[in-house]
Amino acid sequence: MVHAEPAWAVYEQGSTFTAVNSTEVRSFTIKWPTDVKEREAVADVLDDADKELYSLRGRLAKARAIKTGMMQQLLTGRVRLPVEAS
């Protein structure tokens, strides 16, 4: 919630790493739509975003596994890349 960052700055303590305590967190208010339809629409968008993130994480894991397998094949010499003749 980037829009709330200025409000959090009021509670921050510390110079190197800022922090807030649990009492301040509990007292912080978040604006919430009063219209049920709007809340449901927001929830639907967030659900879709979660599904997309889940899918992308799965694709990333598969790509990393393929990369690892390819690197093992190349580094052990089981697979050789073609070399162009000069």
Results as ranks from 00 to 15, higher is better:
Asn21Pro: 03
Val20Arg: 00
Ser27Gln: 07
Asp35Gly: 04
Glu38Met: 05
Trp8Phe: 01
Thr76Phe: 03
Val2Lys: 04
Glu12Gln: 14
Glu12Ser: 14
Thr68His: 12
Ala65Glu: 12
Gln72Ile: 15
Lys37Gln: 13
Asn21Gln: 08
Glu40Arg: 09
Tyr54Val: 15
Ser27Cys: 10
Val10His: 02
Val25Lys: 07
Ala19Arg: 06
Thr76Met: 13
Thr68Arg: 05
Ala41Glu: 06
Lys67Gln: 08
Ala41Lys: 03
Lys37Phe: 01
Ala43Arg: 10
Ser15Phe: 08
Pro6Ala: 08
Thr23Lys: 02
Val20Gly: 02
Val10Ala: 07
Ser15Lys: 05
Ala49His: 10
Glu5Lys: 08
Val36Gln: 10
Glu84Thr: 03
Asp50Val: 11
Asp35Met: 05
Asn21Glu: 12
Thr16Asn: 11
Ala7His: 01
Thr29Pro: 11
Arg78Ala: 09
Ala63Pro: 00
Asp50Glu: 05
Gln73Leu: 04
Ala49Thr: 04
Pro33Tyr: 00
Asp50Ile: 15
His3Glu: 04
Leu60Glu: 06
Ala19Asn: 01
Arg57His: 15
Leu74Gln: 07
Ile66Ser: 12
Asp48Pro: 05
Asp50Tyr: 11
Thr18Cys: 14
Ala61Asn: 06
Val25Tyr: 04
Leu74Ser: 07
Met70Asn: 09
Pro82Ser: 11
Ser15Ile: 08
Thr76Val: 03
Lys51Leu: 11
Ala9Glu: 13
Gly58His: 10
Lys37Asp: 14
Thr18Met: 15
Ala61Ile: 08
Pro33Leu: 03
Met71Thr: 09
Thr16Gly: 13
Pro6Gln: 06
Val25Thr: 12
Ser15Gly: 03
Val83Phe: 13
Ala4Thr: 04
Val79Ser: 07
Ala85Pro: 07
Arg57Gly: 15
Phe28Ser: 00
Glu84Lys: 13
Ser15Cys: 05
Val20Pro: 00
Asp50Ser: 13
Val20Tyr: 07
Pro33Lys: 06
Thr76Arg: 02
Ala63His: 07
Lys37Ser: 08
Ile30Arg: 04
Trp8Lys: 03
Ala85Lys: 15
Phe28Gly: 00
Thr34Glu: 10
Glu24Asn: 10
Pro6Val: 03
Thr23Tyr: 12
Leu53Gly: 06
Glu40Val: 11
